[in-house]
């Protein structure tokens, strides 16, 4: 069987005819996203869903007692103080970058799609589990990976995912792991929608990865994949993704 980066049209037709099974929309979207980032040299990174406190928080400049930890409703594990259900996949790309640096592989760029968890009441736009897409790019100061590069990479991404007429916008924000921090908005059907957060990787995070912020710089970003799917296909309720209901597999 051949490897496919994303779904060819003939397969989609076969699916509709019932000869092929149908793919879950989030898998379809993840495969498309990986394809888009792979073209720019990004490498896929995966990591554990039950994450260490270090990679979910500390490495990302969120030490204990930091108010930023309150910004996320974290699932802590009973009788295990060192593990959490990851609240984002930012720790995955951070860990992958750390390993790449140890192997002397800088510049490097990683992209990770994975399930994340938030301990909050569910409604049409909130779910306790959802998928996040996280990316990071780190280079030497000579490579000069900049905020403008992040805008380039994300403009490319949203155009490929949502259409060539998509505009994107950066607005000021705050995350402990980025400085400057920005919120990414995309204009879809005439409306500005909040899509992602990100920015230039905070020097404190770079130091936590065992690197010297004077010698390397880069960016990282992350946001909900479910949200892109909901916008792209007009899916009204995030909870539909996890019901095991095949009526969803129509894209």
């Amino acid at each position: 069987m051949t490897e496919r980066k994303y779904l060819p049209l003939k397969d989609i037709i076969k699916m509709k005819e019932g000869k092929l099974g149908t793919i879950h929309p989030l898998s379809l979207l993840a495969e498309e996203a990986y394809g888009v980032f792979a073209e720019l040299g990004f490498e896929i990174a995966l990591g554990p869903e039950l994450e260490s406190e270090w990679y979910n928080f500390d490495i990302l400049n969120m030490p204990k007692d930091h108010p930023a930890r309150d910004m996320q409703d974290t699932f802590w594990i009973k009788d295990n103080k060192t593990k959490v259900l990851r609240t984002h996949t930012t720790g995955v790309t951070a860990s992958a970058t750390e390993q790449a640096a140890r192997a002397g592989r800088i510049p490097s760029a990683f992209i990770s799609v994975g399930k994340v968890f938030r301990n909050e009441a569910t409604d049409a736009t909130h779910e306790m589990q959802f998928f996040q897409i996280d990316g990071s790019m780190l280079g030497t100061t000579e490579d000069g990976v900049s905020l403008a590069n992040m805008k380039g990479v994300l403009t490319n991404f949203y155009r490929k995912m949502l259409g060539d007429d998509i505009e994107i916008e950066f607005r000021p924000s705050f995350f402990p792991f980025t400085e400057p921090s920005i919120e990414v908005f995309a204009k879809f059907k005439g409306k500005w929608l909040e899509m992602m957060g990100g920015g230039m990787t905070n020097p404190a995070v770079i130091r936590n990865m065992g690197l010297d912020p004077k010698k390397v710089q880069g960016f990282c970003f992350g946001g909900g994949l479910d949200r892109i799917a909901m916008i792209k296909w007009g899916i009204p309720d995030v909870r539909l993704f996890y019901q095991g209901d095949l009526r969803l597999n129509q894209f």
Binding site: A38, L40, G41, F42, E43, I44, A45, L46, R105, P107, S108, A109, M137, G139, D143, V145, S146, L147, A148, N149, K151, G152, V153, L154, T155, N156, I168, E169, F170, R171, P172, I182
Partner: peptide, 18 residues
């Protein structure tokens, strides 16, 4: 940040397969 213009980085990465 509207002054920051989108630019695709011209870096030769050597990605590995996952």
């Amino acid at each position: 940040y509207d002054k920051v213009l989108p630019t695709i980085p011209k870096i030769k990465f050597k990605p590995k397969q996952n």
